[in-house]
């Protein structure tokens, strides 16, 4: 029941937007699609939704092409271009239009409008909505049918802080309940917080396909205690390795917060601080990957 790209290629004239792209988004996971502008992310998403026809290869959902699914519109929710709606139609009518195609009740329309926080502006014309509101409206449309799959292209663009936080919770809960998410985003720090895996596309080709757990140090915690030496002893005895954060009283450990708390509690040590390490690992990983590839391209072009 996964989303699968099998050697998908797509050309526009002489330009290859996608070149033998293959990757899988397993059920119950969130897969982040990374890449520069024009790398081919949106084309890939359109291919899997049947909006664009691959030149070669197949993109499937639950082993079927989107249009061959029994009820594709019910199974899959998508956000592709939040600004792509008639500017002179109200937010509520925009969503009602799609709801009637999906044979979804009018009460569900109001439910999702309230869910995304647009209940109060349903009568406002689409052109008068802010970018964040348009993004919320697009998410409301994607959620109309309680789908099993979410395919989202830059869904965080323009969302405010509350919106981003709400969206993060929504995706994590959705995946935890067995849903499958494929999301393209440039907000790597956000992706780091909820994605299970990332696929990096560069100039239409997959550069890497990685589980985030394989990135060393991604789930690190920063801790500070009343007795750092005692804590080091306790955690080391439990098989964990710690590092001091230079110039601070903080320690860094790669472990679950619950385990660290338990060990500190057992050793009679008071934890003064325990928080996820604010890292830029995904960003570093991504930039390294793209730079390495560009370097190779440079070499090749010289040769």
């Amino acid at each position: 029941m996964s989303i699968k790209f099998d050697r998908v290629s797509k050309n526009y004239g002489k330009r290859w937007a996608l070149n033998e792209v293959s990757f899988t988004c397993p059920t119950g996971t969130i897969t982040g699609l990374l890449g520069q502008n024009g790398a081919g992310k949106s084309t890939a998403l359109r291919c899997v939704l049947g909006l664009s026809h691959p030149t070669q290869g197949v993109a499937t959902i639950a082993d079927k092409h989107f249009t061959e699914l029994r009820q594709p519109q019910v199974m899959v929710g998508a956000v592709l271009d939040a600004s792509a709606h008639h500017p002179g139609r109200s937010a509520r009518n925009t969503i009602r239009l799609i709801a009637s195609l999906l044979q979804v009740s009018a009460s569900r329309v109001d439910d999702v409008l309230n869910l995304v926080g647009l209940g109060g502006v349903g009568g406002r014309q689409f052109r008068a909505l802010s970018l964040g509101m348009k993004q919320r409206l697009a998410l409301a449309i994607a959620l109309l049918t309680n789908p099993q799959y979410l395919i989202l292209d830059e869904p965080l663009n323009g969302l405010d802080i509350e919106g981003v936080s709400w969206f993060r919770e929504l995706l994590v809960t959705f995946a935890r309940e067995g849903g499958t998410v494929l999301v393209s985003s440039h907000m790597l720090a956000e992706l780091e917080g909820y994605a299970d895996r990332v696929v990096t596309i560069h100039q239409g080709q997959v550069l890497d396909d990685k589980n985030l757990s394989e990135l060393p140090g991604l789930r690190e915690l920063v801790i500070r205690s009343s007795d750092n030496e005692g804590l080091i002893t306790a955690l080391t005895a439990a098989g964990l390795s710690l590092q001091a954060v230079p110039g601070t009283q903080q320690l860094c450990v790669s472990a679950e917060a619950e385990l660290v708390s338990q060990l500190a509690f057992s050793a009679g040590i008071l934890l003064l601080e325990i928080s996820p390490r604010r890292s830029r690992l995904l960003e570093t990983y991504y930039l390294d990957l793209v730079a390495k590839n560009s370097h190779h391209e440079g070499k090749n072009s010289i040769l």
């Binding site: 359109r46 939704l49 049947g50 909006l51 989107f66 249009t67 594709p72 519109q73 899959v76 998508a78 592709l80 271009d81 600004s83 792509a84 709606h85 008639h86 500017p87 239009l97 799609i98 195609l101 999906l102 697009a138 449309i141």
Partner: peptide, 18 residues
């Protein structure tokens, strides 16, 4: 033309792919 002109067509074809 209205669906194509204002690009509602992407949402419409996802909701009703035929």
């Amino acid at each position: 033309t209205m669906d194509w002109q204002h690009r509602d067509i992407t949402s419409i074809l996802v909701a009703a792919p035929s």
